[in-house]
Amino acid sequence: MAHEPAHHGAPETVASAEAHVAGGEVHEHPTWHTYKWVALILTVITIVEVWVYYIPAFVASRIFVPALLTMSAVKFVIVVMFYMHLKYDHKLFRALFTGPLIIAMTTIIALMFLFAKLVIRTG
């Protein structure tokens, strides 16, 4: 924990100092090219998701739900990692997000079991 000497003066100074710290991170932030590729991947996955929705044989198959869940999880993760900068940012933010997310997802899954919604489709 590096403590700089006390700031002299107004909150403005502090704010700009912090912005400066944030500015230091800017170089690590992805560039336009990364953002462009992420957008492209999101679009492609969305197209694939909608496309498979219209293939009756695929919808009827056992991998339909897992495939869609995986695709949407990939979209979720890349938005969080690249657009929300969680891949580059302070690890505290990662903890503040993933902790609650795990509890939220576990709660959903537990409720699905309790209401007999989570059953393995057998053909």
């Binding site: 924990m1 403590h3 006390a6 107004a10 912090e18």
Partner: peptide, 10 residues
């Protein structure tokens, strides 16, 4: 004077 820096720098 002023505010101490935040603990995490964030």
């Amino acid at each position: 004077a002023g505010h101490p820096p935040t603990t995490t720098g964030l």
